[in-house]
């Protein structure tokens, strides 16, 4: 009984605590944390931009693992999870780019520059968005699952590139800073937000994956498969 309830409720628990953490973390970032020595108040953008960026890459890593599981087992559950993680990853990357631009404008003076990290992030967005686009073109379920997994795995090649490119090439975008080098009062709101985005992302993946399972089950019921294959995004 309790186990059943927990199974139904766990995404909601993640979602609620993620939301709570984001509210607390963002309030702290906006009011309590001091402005940074050189960047002033603009540095407060970091407390949301960096968590979104890190979690975008993490969610895409989930997608990569789910894709391998989907290829390996051929189970519908993993296919739904892969789709969900790719979509949430795309949404987070879609959020990561404008928040970065809103930081770049006051500090670098431009909205966009063809810096390696910005370029690789944009490519990542396009790569994973095409995975979702491809899904809507394929009607046979088994083939769609395989192709989703294959394209997700290949697209993942770009993710380590996004992460490491700032170290490999000298770049305008700064290298990952370690918490020791940053003021403790700025680290706390960032940490809270990082876990907030992660929990929220887990909630969204669970929700989207449940939706995809229903959709796939619905395809089985409905005689013409095309009716149910309309895909979001």
């Amino acid at each position: 009984m309790l186990k059943r309830a927990l199974k139904r409720l766990w995404p909601g628990i993640f979602g609620f605590s993620g939301l709570l953490m984001l509210l607390v973390g963002s309030t702290l970032a906006l009011s309590w944390a001091p402005p940074e020595r050189h960047m002033g108040d603009v540095s407060r953008i970091f407390s949301i931009h960096v968590p979104v960026a890190q979690n975008a890459l993490l969610v895409l890593l989930f997608a990569f693992c789910f894709a391998i599981a989907s290829l390996w087992t051929g189970r519908r559950r993993w296919d739904a999870a892969t789709t969900a993680a790719v979509e949430v990853g795309v949404v987070l990357t879609l959020l990561l780019l404008p928040t970065g631009m809103l930081w770049a404008r006051p500090t670098w003076g431009v909205w966009w520059t063809w810096d390696v990290r910005l370029t690789t992030s944009l490519i990542g967005l396009i790569l994973f968005a095409t995975v979702l686009a491809l899904r809507s073109f394929v009607e046979d379920e088994g083939r769609r699952a395989t192709w989703t997994a294959v394209t997700t795995i290949v697209a993942f090649v770009d993710v380590p590139l996004i992460y490491f490119c700032v170290r490999w090439w000298r770049s305008l975008h700064q290298v990952q800073s370690s918490p020791e080098t940053v003021d403790a009062m700025m680290v706390l709101p960032y940490r809270i937000n990082a876990f907030g985005v992660l929990f929220l992302a887990i909630y969204l993946i669970a929700l989207r994956s449940r939706l995809e399972m229903r959709r796939l089950a619905g395809e089985e019921v409905a005689p013409p498969p095309r009716l149910a294959s309309s895909t979001a995004l």
Binding site: H38, M39, G40, D41, H49, T99, R105
Partner: peptide
């Protein structure tokens, strides 16, 4: 030091 920029900060969080 970059002075101001609160509009960018608010826009980021709102977005």
């Amino acid at each position: 030091v970059i002075v101001g920029g609160w509009s960018y900060v608010i826009a980021t969080y709102a977005l």
